[in-house]
């Protein structure tokens, strides 16, 4: 274990992770103080991502164990890309069933810039820059990048792919399929390129893709709520005897 694919030395990575630890944005999570509040106030996904990065920065030794476990574990199977799971880029897929809304309508809603922006909020801030181009940002430290709509089939599928190398999310695709007479199944597939080079990847592996998967579930839940009720449920504005009522 020497250098990560991103070319950072171990020390540099440590510094980078230490910097990110204190920052506050959707990817890095709030400060330590705020995280503690989240623990009592509900599940804050950015907070979880922050924890993942803290794990990446702080526990390289456990990372080694994690890598060994992945290499010897039965789940890696015969796929050469999965043989050493530490190097596999996290790919996650989650589905949700949306009752009584046909695929065409779901497609149309997802093509609206405002909808995309709101449901992708757990992952990144999305701005439309015109002509199928969107700019995704995850905070000043980890930057922003462009994603282009590369697949656009009404009622069937949508896919955005990152342009350039600095993207934390390589691609996002959404597929729609009818679920009998029970509505439409929406499958969200996300390929990530986590920060922190190899350590980040190991951390993501150790946690079994749990964190990005919970983000994906959250996005889908937002989408379902938005198309069915016109709003995304939140506890943000409710009174509570905490500085941050979430």
């Amino acid at each position: 274990m020497t250098y990560g694919q991103d070319g950072f030395s171990r020390r540099e990575r440590g510094e980078r992770a230490a910097r990110t630890h204190a920052a506050e944005d959707p990817w890095l999570g709030p400060s330590r103080r705020q995280r503690r509040q989240d623990a009592s106030g509900g599940l804050s996904t950015p907070g979880l991502i922050g924890l993942a990065l803290a794990a990446a920065a702080g526990v390289a030794a456990i990372g080694v164990l994690g890598a060994q476990r992945s290499a010897s574990g039965g789940r890696t199977g015969g796929d050469p890309n999965r043989g050493s799971a530490a190097w596999r880029k996290p790919e996650i897929e989650r589905s949700i069933t949306i009752e009584d809304v046909p695929a065409d309508e779901l497609y149309r809603r997802l093509r609206e810039p405002e909808t995309l922006q709101r449901i992708m909020a757990p992952f990144a801030t999305v701005e439309t820059t015109g002509d199928g181009q969107t700019r995704w940002s995850v905070g000043h430290d980890l930057g922003s990048w462009d994603m282009r709509l590369t697949d656009d089939r009404p009622g069937e599928a949508l896919r955005w792919e990152a342009q350039g190398d600095d993207a934390l999310i390589r691609d996002v695709s959404v597929r729609f399929r009818a679920a009998g007479n029970r509505g439409t199944v929406v499958a969200l597939h996300v390929s990530l390129d986590p920060p922190g080079g190899m350590l980040g990847r190991i951390a993501t592996q150790m946690l079994g893709d749990t964190l990005p998967a919970s983000l994906a579930s959250k996005s889908l839940h937002y989408f379902k709520a938005l198309v069915q009720t016109g709003e995304i449920p939140t506890t943000e504005r409710q009174p509570a005897a905490r500085p941050d009522p979430r």
């Binding site: 199977g77 897929e93 989650r94 589905s95 949700i96 069933t97 929406v186 998967a213 579930s217």
Partner: peptide, 17 residues
């Protein structure tokens, strides 16, 4: 189950349900 995550696959086969 040695090659795939059972929970993930079952959820995928049932539209997340």
């Amino acid at each position: 189950f040695e090659e795939e995550d059972v929970v993930e696959r079952l959820n995928a086969l049932t539209g997340g349900e």
